[in-house]
Computed example of a mutant assay.
Amino acid sequence: MDVKQIIDYLAAYDGRPLKIMEVCGTHTAAIFKNGIRSLISDKIKLISGPGCPVCVTPTAYIDRCIEYASRENHTLLTFGDMMKVPGSSGSLSEAKGNGSVNVDIMYSPFEALEKAAGDPGRTYVVAAVGFETTVPTYAMMVQEAARRGIRNVKLVTALKTVMVALEWICENQEDVDGFICPGHVSVITGSDVYKPLAERYHRPFVVTGFEAEHILASIYRIVRQIETGGAAVENLYRNAVKDEGNRKAVAIMEEAFETGPAMWRGLGIIEKSGLYLREELAGYDGGSRDLYQDMELPSQCRCGDVIVGRINPDECPMFGRGCDPVKPFGPCMVSSEGACGIWYRNVH
């Protein structure tokens, strides 16, 4: 079918109401950019998932980063989207503004190695946040540090695996009918990793790219599977995603990291969803485990429901009223990849 036929089919859909989750924040942004909701039937509801690692980073992690950045002869290196995430007593941006911390924006984790090698009297602490997409880079960086004997580098990790979160959603959210799988993550994991979830929970999982026609095709394939009683994994992004994934990247990741429980801001602790440096690399760990404390969100903040697709962001009572991208309160408003931030820029 061509794109016009797919649009006509989805616009005319008149079956039972469906909820399809796009897990990745980049897909959420592309859906708004291309007006996809306006092209499909009102009976097909697109909901956002936990596709933004910054948004699910807990309070205790931010507090640990600020504590390191406050130490003498220490510098915290972070990507820019972490600066506004609120900790228990403010964000990194606020702490930097009042001159109480040493924080530098990095564009690659490997910057830490060159900085540390050139300034052995200072410890460079890397705020390592991300999903499977970025974990191999952090693994290679710390392995290179060990190879070169650079000891004044630390990682404070908030690295998580989307796959475990998807299993948690399948187990706890029975009304999600199908999943548009995260494209960037799938480049690393491959598409076959979704097969056990599709079989166990009898829901379709479709891997796709980020252009409008890619997303429309994935919605069409999910709807067709549901209509015919199917629950399979389909890979519509074969130019980037192999069924078996990037085995070399996965091997590098597994060499450096092991799984453990992790706090997801707004959701709570999910077992085996966190990634932590293995014992042989423990000297580079800046205290990443057991960061379970999270700010108790007020009852009117519905970020926990947004992250698992129970509500749309604009259904939260705080959306645009005490919580916006300039001064975010809830985690989903913090990052450009967060569902609330995307919705605010497009519907507010």
Rank of each mutant, 00 (worst) to 15 (best):
Y61K: 10
V125E: 01
S70M: 09
S48N: 12
A12L: 13
Y124P: 04
D104E: 15
R265F: 00
N34C: 12
A127F: 12
Y220N: 09
S336D: 05
G25C: 01
I44N: 04
L76M: 12
E67A: 14
C332V: 11
D294C: 13
V54Q: 00
V125F: 04
T161H: 05
D175W: 04
S48A: 15
Q5N: 14
L297T: 08
E144N: 08
M83G: 01
E111D: 14
L159G: 02
M1V: 11
I188Y: 00
M106D: 07
V233K: 02
D177P: 01
M82H: 02
A282D: 14
E258G: 15
F257Q: 13
N73V: 08
Y194V: 13
F257K: 09
A60T: 08
D314N: 12
I215G: 01
L275Q: 10
C301Y: 04
R148F: 03
I47R: 03
G118W: 09
A232Q: 12
I44H: 01
F205G: 12
L46A: 06
S335F: 00
P120L: 09
E227A: 05
R238S: 14
Y61L: 14
N346D: 10
I44E: 04
L77G: 02
H184R: 03
V241Y: 13
G229T: 12
Y61C: 10
V185L: 08
E94T: 03
W343N: 07
L236I: 09
V187E: 02
S100N: 13
I66A: 05
F179M: 02
G274Y: 06
E94C: 04
P298I: 15
S335M: 03
K272H: 14
F257V: 11
K84S: 01
G149W: 04
S273W: 02
A212F: 10
A249I: 05
Y344S: 13
M318I: 14
G268D: 13
V56T: 09
C181T: 08
N235S: 07
S299K: 14
T157C: 15
D290S: 15
I40M: 07
A262R: 04
N73F: 08
L277D: 07
I311H: 03
P58M: 08
L275K: 11
Y124T: 06
M253T: 13
D177G: 06
A212W: 06
E114K: 13
Q5L: 10
E254I: 12
M163T: 13
D177K: 03
G25N: 01
T78L: 03
I252S: 14
P120G: 10
T137F: 06
C332Q: 06
R247P: 00
P86F: 00
G268Q: 09
T26M: 14
Y194H: 10
E234Y: 08
R345Y: 11
